[in-house]
Amino acid sequence: MRKLIVFAALGLVGCDDPLAYPQDIDRLRVLGARARVAGDASRASPAPGEAVSLEWLVVDPEPAPALGWFFEACPSQARSRGAPECSGPVFAEQGAPAPSTALPQFDFTAVDAERILVRGLVCRDAAVTSLSDACGGEHERVLFELGVGGDNANPTLADAQLTIGGQPWPAPADLAEPGCAADDLPSDSDAKLSVQLVLAASDRDPIQDPKGLAPPFEPLFVSQFSTLGHFARPLSVIEGASEQFDLTVSWRAPADAAGQRARFYFVVRDGRGGVDWSARTLCLAP
């Protein structure tokens, strides 16, 4: 175990200069997957036999790329380390018949298993018929593992208070609009703005740890992304033992993008499969 800390320490030194910034959307990216149980959209973990919709948040510097995709689901089980693997045959699969600007959504019925593993391939401008397809262009291979049974709830950003530069920051009416929209807040070029997100205490589920070593609640991880400009960091965390639910991160506007529309994505996770996301926009002033 000693090696873990030494390894971690050495690995961290100098990490202030990453090879690429995960918070910058500069290519086709999958940012999250949200499981919604039929009849109870707040629940992230289906019971066997329940229908589930798995929605995927796919973003790109372009507002609405045409996407081809294919997903399959199989049972899986707890493992020691490494990527999850199927422990049984694939029981559901689904693909888009043709590239579409709609976000991917994979519908299936949960089987009686410890967990369900969903694997997928999302491609730009190409139809996908199996996971072994080679898209040729930009693509993302993805997986998502969700527990079966239990009552883990999705956190929600719908009620979260979001401000930028001290002003309330409402969701846009049309995220796919390529240029600035009338309801977009403006931003000066090269401005540094403070973004604040306030979540609700009810977004966290309690953690049952008989050993008493885990925090009383699940933590919440908020990832922030922008298609223009740059967030100071990619991730913010509300720890399971924290009583503070507000997060603040600064965003710097680009100096040379006058008149363009910047899109922002906020994805909140509970680390156990519960996910939600929300988007915002800004118009960069000439």
Binding site: R141, R269, G273
Partner: peptide, 9 residues
């Protein structure tokens, strides 16, 4: 290569 694990991001 790499696979995006959407559970943890």
């Amino acid at each position: 290569g790499a696979v995006y694990d959407a559970r943890v991001g």
